[in-house]
């Protein structure tokens, strides 16, 4: 019996797979992969969803074994902490006193938002900092990746290295502290004084007026990281013939090409890059500490990360610190949702 005849028979009699097997037992061994898949689909309808799930779980039990070690560590050190922070934030738990009679409801949050001036200042600083570095570094990553995409592979590799190096060069950012150091031996002060623009050295990182701006500059200097590489990789996967077709269809310049073709094609990478930029913009505390000191002059660069460090690992007021962590977490989720909404408008 040929395949065609077989199909006709099945169509004609509308038999279920089980009947089919009973009627034609000899075809089972010669069954192809597609038919095996079809067989699964038919079988799926024979039993309830619950039974089906159980059966599939048994069938693929090796997969659960394979993800088990990773999931164990992942849940313990990434998911559980979020839950634990949320619970602890409702308590006055303190590592130094170890008091266990401590449920205080939302008191930590009212203290944060109505009594703690430094936290409010830190909130403002963090939002300003993130609102500038996040989008700017994101756009910069994309624009640079897009610009270098048309260079020849060899030159592109070098340019990529120059732009990416600051983000992986560990503690090299401390050099900014020397470039902008407080005395006349710092390069900026030295040069400006030599040219007669300044009379006396400026305190750059230790001056309220400049500290924040300089930190933002350093953050941007270090910000072409994972998102940047992701964009470079993504841009190379776009097929060239799409651009040719688009040119025929009336795309007139590179900006139209960017908006109507490149950006929509890159949507998935743009989303990933956005998540990376958000993480970067909110995880910048240690660099600020190194450059401006802790705490910075008049709390001009004090961010939520610093509050967290202050209460968490110096005063050990874990309950209060946890409420700060929860606030930071919620801000990041909010930023992520905002970005998702904005990205859904791309290419329309």
């Amino acid at each position: 019996m040929t395949d065609k005849e077989l199909n006709q028979t099945v169509e004609a009699r509308k038999i279920t797979h089980r009947e089919f097997q009973r009627v034609y037992p000899e075809t089972i061994n010669s069954i192809s992969t597609e038919e095996a898949n079809r067989k699964r689909v038919v079988a799926r309808k024979d039993i309830s969803l619950f039974q089906w799930t159980i059966r599939e779980m048994k069938r693929y039990k090796i997969a659960y074994l394979m993800i088990a070690p990773f999931m164990f560590v992942f849940i313990l050190f990434t998911l559980f902490p979020v839950l634990l922070s949320a619970i602890l934030s409702l308590t006055s738990f303190n590592m130094l006193e170890m008091n266990w009679d401590m449920f205080i409801g939302l008191d930590n949050y009212t203290r944060l938002f109505f009594e703690d001036d430094i936290f409010l200042q830190a909130c403002k600083n963090t939002l300003v900092f993130a609102a500038i570095t996040g989008p700017v570094s994101y756009i910069l990553s994309f624009v640079v990746a897009w610009f270098i995409n048309e260079l020849s592979p060899r030159i592109r590799a070098w340019v990529t290295l120059i732009f990416y190096a600051p983000s992986i060069s560990g503690g090299a950012y401390t050099i900014w502290g020397y470039l902008f150091s407080d005395d006349s031996y710092g390069w900026v002060n030295g040069t400006l004084m030599d040219l007669g623009i300044l009379d006396a050295p400026k305190l750059w990182f230790h001056d309220e007026k400049y500290a924040m701006t300089l930190c933002i500059v350093v953050a941007l200097w270090m910000s072409l990281g994972t998102a940047f590489l992701s964009f470079i990789g993504g841009l190379q996967t776009i097929r060239k013939d799409i651009f040719e077709a688009a040119a025929v269809d009336g795309i007139k310049n590179r900006w139209q090409e960017l908006w109507f073709i490149t950006l929509p094609e890159m949507k998935n990478h743009l989303m990933f890059g956005a998540v990376m930029s958000i993480t970067g913009a909110f995880g910048f505390g240690s660099v600020v500490t190194q450059l401006c000191g802790f705490p910075s002059v008049n709390y001009s660069c004090h961010t939520i990360m610093h509050c967290l460090e202050d209460y968490g690992s110096q005063r050990w007021e874990v309950g209060y610190a946890s409420s700060i962590a929860v606030v930071l977490f919620l801000i990041m989720i909010g930023a992520n949702m905002l970005v998702k909404k904005l990205l859904s408008k791309v290419g329309r």
Binding site: F74, L76, T78, V82, L84, I278, T279, G312, F329
Partner: peptide
């Protein structure tokens, strides 16, 4: 879940992890 956890910086989890 794993994908959305890409956002959790170590700053957020560090205190709770200390306890764990």
């Amino acid at each position: 879940t794993i994908q959305s956890s890409l956002m959790f910086t170590s700053t957020v989890t560090s205190i709770a992890n200390f306890i764990t």
